[in-house]
Write a protein that binds this DNA or RNA. Structure first.
Lengths: 102, 102
DNA sequence: GGCTGGTATCAGTACCGGGTGATGTGAGAG
DNA sequence: CTCTCACATCACCCGGTACTGATACCAGCC
């Protein structure tokens, strides 16, 4: 059982705006201008966050003329979910393992 | 289907040291001095992080004389895992929902 | 060709949050 | 009671990072 969670991936998702982007992309594939009007954030700000998500492998881009569509990669999220599931399972079984006071 | 992930909870877990603490507590219940020697961090630093984890409801304390045992709450982690599972599932089914270019 | 609109990159700033040292508190041991 | 130890709290510094404005890039339209 691997009870190690990818720290970098969580840190990428720990930002409110990035998590909002991910949540929106989980419902449909969108391009930057859509995300601008959905989130209300500036275009530059969004582009920076999208770069972080892209470099972390959370999203992938698909150019469409002048537009750039962003799509969420479900397997990355699923892998993270699995890591947390393992962690919860480990915690549940090892709840009574109490190391003696030194 | 609720595809909203608790931002505050992720931000709590997004710190490397806190995630290390959680991973250690997933294997056995420990007190602060154990965590000090396991992580190599200062006691003050650990105490600060443990406070954050406590206030977020991730861990619960159990006083034992002069010692304080920290136990991980599996349901909180499991709930987070479920949220990510839902998110991944939503992304998988809605992969082809592409909003038209404006 | 020039122009416009969509997006990415760069440099600067401001702020949040993690690390640390000093100090407080409370329970046992003597 | 006093002293020690385990732990918590407070105040402070400092570095990373999110946000911004200016600018560069690229594709399509005229």
């Amino acid at each position: 059982m691997m009870t190690s969670v990818d720290t970098d991936l969580i840190r990428v998702l720990a930002d409110p705006l990035r998590l909002q982007i991910v949540t929106l992309l989980a419902k449909e594939t969108l391009c930057t201008s859509h995300l601008v009007e959905e989130t209300g954030a500036r275009q530059t700000n969004l582009s920076n966050h999208l770069r972080v998500l892209r470099e972390a492998g959370v999203v992938e881009t698909e150019p469409c003329g002048r537009f750039t569509y962003y799509k969420l990669r479900p397997d990355v999220i699923a892998q993270l979910a699995g890591q947390f599931t393992d962690l919860a399972e480990s915690a549940r079984t090892a709840a009574e393992n109490k190391r003696a006071c030194p």
